[in-house]
């Protein structure tokens, strides 16, 4: 097959490949250059490394924390809270969306409440959460859930409602009941909505959990950031942020994998 391509097509392929390579290369180059610039500026005291930290100081800090085991501890605490918040809010939000979808009356009644909840900055509820639920992991997870659940519900509900009416009618003429219509049509048809909700929630649950840790915590990456800021250990703050970046990227990547896997299976 490959040898059947015309000369122009080969040339075109070569060009696109070269372009993809250049893009990847430039990305890495940019990263390295930025790090280098940062490091040099810090070394030669153009910027104050006490305030801005520097790549080498971050590496040193991370090395120390790996050695005394605290890196793993704090990362795990935050990761655990985030995974909890992510899964609970996705599941619960989807369930609520299904419920609202199947009971139009309740949906109509709750519409304005959803809109207001959606535009409310959830962080405003922070003090309430602490009073009602107490400090610690529970409060942090609840914060994460609050951030994700409303948008999950709204997105999934809109997805369900936008499924073509004609397809629903078609299944009705075939004698399908409500449950069958949901599992045969509504659910698979809104699959891409589900994936984008997952992607949004990956980001949002981190936001929620870090916010929760700012409010109340004794461990976790958010705790390290707040604590590092208070005692002016910016190396610590930067290290925690680096770990956060890595974790968020990994989680996003996992969702993309899931998407690819399921798309191929369909």
């Amino acid at each position: 097959m490959k040898n059947n391509y015309s000369k122009e097509h080969k040339k075109y392929l070569l060009k696109t490949r070269a372009r993809v390579f250049t893009i990847h290369f430039s990305r890495i180059l940019l990263f390295v250059l930025l790090l280098l610039l940062w490091e040099l500026c810090a070394r030669f005291n153009i910027i104050d490394p006490f305030i801005t930290s520097s790549p080498s100081r971050i590496v040193k800090q991370l090395g120390m924390m790996i050695n005394d085991g605290s890196l793993w501890h704090h990362t795990w605490v935050t990761l655990y809270e985030t995974i909890l918040a992510f899964s609970i809010s996705t599941l619960l939000g989807t369930l609520i969306a299904i419920l609202l979808y199947s009971i139009p009356f309740v949906r109509k009644v709750l519409e304005p409440y959803l809109v207001i909840l959606n535009s409310l900055p959830k962080i405003a509820l922070g003090p309430l959460i602490i009073v009602w639920i107490g400090t610690g992991t529970k409060a942090i997870v609840v914060m994460g859930i609050l951030i994700c659940i409303v948008i999950t519900t709204i997105s999934m509900l809109n997805g369900y409602l936008s499924v073509e009416k004609e397809k629903i009618l078609l299944l009705k003429t075939m004698g399908a009941n409500k449950l069958q219509i949901f599992f045969r049509l509504i659910f698979p048809a809104t699959f891409s909505d589900m994936i984008s909700v997952l992607k949004i929630n990956v980001g949002m649950s981190w936001v929620g959990v870090i916010m929760g840790e700012y409010l109340t915590s004794r461990a976790g990456l958010g705790y390290l950031i707040v604590y590092g800021g208070q005692v002016f250990k910016l190396d610590l703050v930067m290290s925690a942020i680096v770990v956060l970046c890595l974790l968020a990227a990994v989680m996003y990547f996992l969702v993309s994998l899931l998407e690819m896997y399921v798309n191929r299976k369909r």
Partner: peptide, 15 residues
């Protein structure tokens, strides 16, 4: 009394 209904669009399920 089974009827078969065909619409303007084929309404095939893409997945």
């Amino acid at each position: 009394s089974q009827v078969g209904y065909m619409f303007q669009r084929d309404n095939l399920f893409e997945w």
